[in-house]
């Protein structure tokens, strides 16, 4: 017997089933109806339905033959623009099957491409515009170069509303025969906010512990972010730099986290109003500022350990300034 991950099992197959995002859905349906799809750019935070919308659009556009007409690429995983160029070229060279005269290329996490790669991408988009439409997916529009933005219809996916999330969770829990308490749902909303993927994953993991109540939820959440993140921050604030760096190395090596993952977790720990770190608000704001700078450098290709070490040293400095620890 096997059990699916619920995020996949309950991923909507058609646009109609999508949770909220009504205006976008209605525009996409019109595209399907007219069989006229422009290049698309779906932007918005994680877990709001961007990939789901792209896949559902593909299904409705091509019907049963959707798999043959859709190429799904993830910019973060493809090795450079040359690979993307080759795959798109091979793919777009053949005619689309069925009554839609072009194929659909879904490029997820497009905002992770360097601007050089995006320059090349815009050419690819133009070269194959007769035989292929692109659907780019990104968290931030601002990380997509203007010439590409200019070629796309841009749709913003809003974080989902509390009611939407809770209704969906209840639906899944009922189908799965899982018992959920009101405070459990409330807690999942609290930790996931508008991110439905996180909400569903949390629900499934918490259900493995038994009844999904707030205790189970917080137990899951406490362990999604490694304990080492908090420990590292605490050590750095106390000026114990060398020990903090050991934690850092553990996170990089044993957990296989990227520098950007780590800085993001640090940032959400610092900005979490329930944080167990005892730091004054001014220090939290200052830390967030430095975290942003370090994140920027790593995105630009700098060495993760060095940049994060520099960050830890700055935290130590702040720790002394505010006499923490």
């Amino acid at each position: 017997m096997s059990e699916a991950l619920w995020v996949e099992k309950y991923r909507p197959k058609v646009l109609e089933e999508m949770v909220n995002q009504e205006e976008i859905v209605s525009r996409l349906k019109q595209f399907v109806k007219a069989k006229a799809v422009p290049h698309l750019l779906f932007a918005g935070p994680p877990g709001t339905g961007k990939t789901t919308a792209a896949l559902a659009l593909a299904r409705e556009l091509y019907g049963e033959r959707w798999r043959e007409n859709v190429l799904e690429l993830n910019a973060s995983d493809e090795r450079g623009i040359q690979t993307i160029r080759l795959r798109v070229k091979d793919y777009a060279r053949t005619m689309a099957l069925g009554d839609v005269p072009y194929k659909l290329i879904i490029l997820d996490e497009a905002d992770n491409m360097t601007s050089d790669a995006q320059q090349a991408l815009r050419r690819i988009m133009e070269l194959y515009s007769r035989t292929a439409r692109f659907c780019l997916i990104a968290n931030y529009v601002s990380k997509i170069i203007e010439p590409i933005q200019s070629r796309c219809a841009i749709f913003r996916f809003q974080p989902l509303e509390k009611d939407d999330i809770i209704e969906r969770l209840k639906f899944i829990a009922e189908k799965e025969g899982v018992s959920v308490t009101e405070d459990g749902l409330e807690a999942i909303w609290e930790v996931s906010r508008g991110d439905l993927r996180k909400a569903i994953n949390t629900l499934q993991a918490a259900s493995a512990l038994g009844t999904v109540d707030s205790r189970a939820v917080y137990r899951v959440v406490g362990r999604v972010t490694p304990e080492e993140i908090r420990e590292m921050l605490l050590l750095a604030l106390r000026g114990e730099f060398i020990k903090a760096r050991e934690c850092l190395r553990d996170l990089l090596i044993s957990y296989g986290l990227s520098g950007v993952d780590i800085i993001r977790m640090i940032h959400s720990e610092i900005m979490n109003p329930r944080t167990k770190l005892e730091i004054p608000d001014e220090a939290r704001v200052e830390l967030a500022d430095i975290a942003g700078e370090i994140n920027f450098r790593m995105v630009e290709g700098a060495d993760e350990e060095i940049q994060l070490s520099a960050f830890l040293a700055k935290i130590a400095l702040l720790g002394r300034k505010y006499r923490i620890g």
Binding site: T51, D108, E109, N201, R223
Partner: peptide
């Protein structure tokens, strides 16, 4: 799951690990 490896590492793998640790039978099925 239609995500990148990086997203799989931070957004999906941790949950599978928790499930596997807390409820190995269920984890094995996944």
């Amino acid at each position: 799951c239609h995500v990148s490896r990086a997203v799989a590492n931070t957004e999906i793998l941790p949950y599978i690990k928790i499930i596997y640790k807390e409820n190995p039978e269920y984890g094995r099925k996944i």
